[in-house]
């Protein structure tokens, strides 16, 4: 395996970006990520992006965003209809092939144009479940109920996760939900999708991010402290909610084992946990012990940019390690209802 590192990162997230199109708000981020390492688009060996037509409400929506990269002359490029973390994975695979040394990765999503709770219903089984229009929060509520009634977690534990996310987010300028709240204040909130309270659900955001990857010595040339992707793996669970254990993310556990989480201590973990319940399940599935700081950025609870939230976890971990706030971290991304699909990587500073 070749050593691949993250060399630069740029992001933007806010509750809504009504005045700019996707490509308009992505261009400055793309330029920023490339400028940080002194590369132009034509220096990139490969480019890969992640986005969703259903989010944009338009077929082939990524076709208008590619213009932001400056794809003239033409570029070697691909796109996944997945979170940007899978675009990073595809770029990592391409770099493993050995014929390119640099890759540009970006992803973005605007949740504000459509009703995300409705849009996500179209992810469900199209014959048996989607016609019922299950609300995305209600679906997670099923997992939450199981977790609580099985005694796996308590409502107080969920409130602690929510409170910690808010406290961490207070110092993150990209976070949307930054107002601090105590555990008791959160427990006093009225249920939104019983047993989930407003603080248990993600703060929806519009935004995106861009990142440069490079292999081996090329990465060392490009930045002071490359952050190496020591291992990366992704897995999927069954889709049908009734056939899998919603209180344990089997696919996250396997991906974590394959990525070597637990082989050595990590300083912190950036987990793409849209709900407090997701975070509780992931901590167990990945076997993170109490010494690991979870979501120092505030995580996806504090700002959930669909299609980018997973890649942003990688970026947050990169920035923290690059500036010396830790050496080893877990970065994680998820997709689908109730943590169906999970990607896990171990990152380490030079």
């Amino acid at each position: 395996m070749r050593d691949i590192a993250i060399c630069s990162f740029a992001q933007r997230q806010q509750a809504a970006i009504p005045d700019e199109s996707e490509v308009e708000f992505m261009v400055p981020l793309m330029v920023q990520a490339k400028d940080a390492v002194g590369l132009t688009q034509q220096d990139m060996g490969f480019t890969c992006s992640g986005s969703s037509d259903f989010l944009a409400g338009q077929a082939f929506s990524f076709v208008s965003t590619i213009d932001g990269t400056g794809p003239v002359p033409p570029i070697s490029e691909s796109h996944v209809e997945q979170d940007g973390a899978w675009a990073l994975y595809e770029a990592w695979v391409k770099l493993q092939c050995g014929d390119v040394d640099t890759a540009f990765v970006y992803s973005y999503g605007k949740s504000s144009p459509g009703s995300l709770r409705d849009v996500l219903a179209t992810q469900m089984d199209p014959y048996y479940v989607a016609p019922l229009w299950p609300d995305a929060f209600a679906v997670e509520g099923l997992a939450a109920r199981l977790l609580l009634e099985s005694g796996t977690v308590s409502e107080r534990r969920l409130a602690e996760i929510a409170s910690r996310s808010r406290a961490h987010a207070a110092s993150n300028p990209h976070a949307v939900r930054r107002a601090e709240k105590s555990v008791d204040e959160i427990l006093a909130e009225e249920y939104l999708a019983d047993p989930l309270r407003p603080s248990d659900i993600p703060a929806s955001a519009d935004g995106g991010c861009a990142m440069v990857l490079a292999a081996g010595d090329r990465a060392r040339e490009l930045c002071d402290r490359p952050v190496w992707i020591r291992a990366i793996d992704h897995r999927i669970d069954a889709h049908t909610l009734g056939v899998r254990d919603l209180t344990a993310a089997m696919s996250a556990r396997i991906a974590g084992e394959k990525a070597g989480v637990g082989a050595d201590t990590v300083d912190f973990a950036e987990l793409h946990a849209p709900f407090t319940t997701s975070e509780a399940v992931l901590i167990e599935a990945l076997g993170l012990d109490d010494g690991v700081v979870v979501n120092p950025s505030g995580g996806a609870l504090a700002a959930h940019t669909m299609m980018a939230a997973g890649l942003i976890r990688f970026g947050e971990a990169f920035e923290r390690i690059a500036r010396g706030d830790g050496d080893r971290a877990v970065a994680h991304a998820t997709a689908g209802p109730c943590l169906q699909q999970n990607l896990v990587a171990v990152l380490e500073g030079e």
Binding site: P18, E20, S21, P113, G114, T122, P126, A130, P131
Partner: peptide
Amino acid sequence: RVRTPIRIEYTYTPGRALS
């Protein structure tokens, strides 16, 4: 065959230049 009509409403924003 089953018919499962989908209706999702989007509020499109044109962006700076198109505005």
